[in-house]
Design a protein around this nucleic acid. Sequence first.
DNA 1: GCTTAGTATGCCACAACAGC
DNA 2: GCTGTTGTGGCATACTAAGC
Length: 212
Amino acid sequence: MASLRASGERVTATEEKAGRVVDLNDRSREIFRHIVESYLETGEPVGSRNLSRHLPMTLSPASVRNVMSDLEQLGLIYAPHTSAGRLPTHLGLRLFVDGILEVGDVSEEERRRIEQHVMVSSTSKKVDDMLAEASELISGLSLCAGLVLADKHAMRLKHIEFVQLEPTRALVVLVSEEGTVENRVIKLPEGLPPASLVEATNYLNSHIQGLT
DNA sequence: GCTTAGTATGCCACAACAGC
DNA sequence: GCTGTTGTGGCATACTAAGC
């Protein structure tokens, strides 16, 4: 399985597959990129039909399936079951992230553009808008997917809300003083009366303001 | 629990195109 | 003209979710 480098160092099966990925044509790369990006966005399997609709080039679902089949053989994607779409494998995600990291150093010009853009944005916009714009800017400069994370340690709470989804699940909505909103789904103890959530909401809102 | 609709894949046949 | 490659469409099948 493992081949040998010129230096005699062994190449793992993973590295070997990664090398074969380089041989993929632009279309296969584009499809792989869409699968990973869609997965990162929704967490759901990506189907050939949906993919064919959203691809920049015109390809039928069957053609997309053929490419998907190649990507599956390379171990980059897999199907959770026969009638589901495809998900990126650990190897696929690894290669995708490596691809992002290997875009290269940011040039002085690019750095200046980013800083200038963020400075302008920060004076007039909400954090969510700034993050979206920063992601767009990075994506534009790198020609890859852009991923931007905000520092959550500094988030100071302004308001909290519990929304019961099911008897044992609730959605927690956290609003920060900066205006950012975060959602979390939590498990509830069985038999918890709905009034308890209202009580918890009122209690927390009177005690958490300004806390991290 | 059963039925139905929607969506997905695999397989096959066919068409278009390029290379010989 | 023949052959191989690539792309497309159609059909059968599988699975999930929703409705009854």
